[in-house]
Design a protein around this nucleic acid. Structure first.
Lengths: 146, 146
DNA sequence: GGCGATTAAATTGTATGCAATCAATTAAAT
DNA sequence: ATTTAATTGATTGCATACAATTTAATCGCC
């Protein structure tokens, strides 16, 4: 590829990923509105529905987000009554996030979101899994450089 | 996949794309800092280096961004002396974006960024092109739903 | 020509993201 | 015990993103 072509937007893998991420988030918007969550709040709840009582640090590792993003987001979810934020007695540097009953119950309402989204986007399960695997590989490669 | 598994974060294609986009942007950060640009400002300049004198609407279509994002971003680039914003005489609703000489010249400094980034990320050109093609396909599928 | 519908930007308000820095606490070394 | 370093969150400042609304200009249709 010549020097001019590499600067063409449509040739850039990075831009494709970046634009795709935003378009997908927009697709989630109406579905998540029914739960009263934004996309970032939703993926935070996904982790907590898998594993309750985790630290902010752990959430950050799973979500690839830092405390500058998570602290206000978790305070918001706390104010919505979905979780609690309590300092760890054993190590006061850590904050333990715990779902409230309301937060746990919200999972039921979220169960059908993945399927509804896939239907909407018209993507087959197989090609999605293949693509997910490749992108995850790239994600880990890229993250290792930071 | 059972109902529990579909809600697992690591099974979600959408999250992989979302996290990957942010990690890639972070990888760009030190390279773009040399040019004094953010990632969004950089991709805006990419379009303008391809095609000068375009409308805000056109930029939005290429970048998948709306005027709410572009207007302040373009004002910033204007204040940096890289471009001008002028109403179209033929249709006063539109604003024409034109590179200044300084804006055009910046392209030279940007030429080697794609290669440096790929080296840094350790991704081969072939697998990148394959992945880019698949993600672009998904991007267009998803965007068609909006 | 006139007027409702449409279009293009700009504005407003909310929610991220993240770099950089700070503060508090804990762990390690001497 | 004291100093030093590392860890964990919180804070601050800046730059997006985008939904929703507003404003101004143009278009379509009669």
């Amino acid at each position: 590829m010549n020097t001019d072509a590499v600067l063409k937007l449509d040739n850039q893998l990075c831009f494709a990923v970046y634009a795709c991420a935003r378009e997908i988030t927009k697709l989630y918007h109406p579905l998540l509105k029914e739960l009263g969550l934004t996309y970032t709040q939703y993926i935070t709840m996904l982790v907590l529905w898998e594993e309750d009582e985790v630290t902010v640090k752990y959430l950050g590792q799973r979500l690839y987000l830092d405390s500058g993003t998570l602290t206000p987001l978790l305070k918001k979810l706390e104010s919505m009554g979905l979780l609690t934020r309590v300092r760890d007695k054993k190590d006061e540097r850590s904050v333990i996030i715990t779902l409230t009953e309301q937060g746990s119950l919200l999972k039921e309402k979220a169960i059908d979101i993945p399927e509804r989204l896939f239907c909407q986007a018209g993507i087959s399960t197989n090609e999605a899994e293949e693509l997910r695997s490749q992108i995850t590989e790239m994600l880990q490669k890229v993250q290792a450089q930071q």
